[in-house]
């Protein structure tokens, strides 16, 4: 069965959402203080989340040790791939912000941080799923289209 091959790691979705809250706060402070140092920190967190998994970030550690024991609700298990994808998208935006900062452009820095902040905030407050909205769109844009001929034959 292909579902056996696709079996993947499950994580507590509440932890990923808590991580999004901390991320949104970090971005908010970074935006107001125009701090590249905070973005560098967040980029490092995203790198861990994107390559190893969101359950290994410092925010996930805080969630497990401080927040989780105080929560009354049951864990909501979720595939690790959607939040991992979101962390990778976040990493790209933090890198753009850092490049902007290196080039001395506060506009590039602010726009990239603002976009990442909006995504993290939507993720936390509305359970917004970045992978749902943009993964397929990205694949569609990257892969060549070859359906024209079939359409014309019909």
């Amino acid at each position: 069965m292909s579902s056996m091959l696709k079996a993947s790691v499950q994580i507590d979705a509440r932890g990923a959402r808590f991580g999004a809250l901390i991320t949104a706060i970090v971005f908010s402070v970074a935006l107001v203080t125009q701090s590249p140092a905070l973005i560098m920190w967040q980029a490092a967190v995203f790198a861990i989340g994107a390559f190893r998994g969101p359950q290994f970030t410092p925010y996930a550690v805080i969630f497990r040790s401080v927040v989780k024991p105080r929560l009354k609700s049951n864990p909501i298990f979720e595939d690790v791939r959607p939040p991992k994808f979101a962390q990778a998208v976040g990493l790209v935006f933090t890198i753009i912000a850092l490049i902007g900062s290196l080039l001395g452009s506060s506009v590039v820095f602010s726009v990239a941080v603002a976009a990442a902040l909006a995504a993290a905030f939507l993720n936390f407050a509305f359970n917004y799923c970045l992978g749902c909205q943009f993964y397929l769109l990205g694949v569609r844009l990257v892969s060549p289209r070859n359906s024209k001929i079939t359409l014309e034959v019909k």
Binding site: S8, A13, E78, D79, R81, P82, K84, G131, C132, Y135
Partner: peptide
């Protein structure tokens, strides 16, 4: 239904 691996509500 169209799904993807990077979509949490798909399941």
């Amino acid at each position: 239904q169209f799904s993807s691996a990077f979509c949490a509500p798909c399941r």
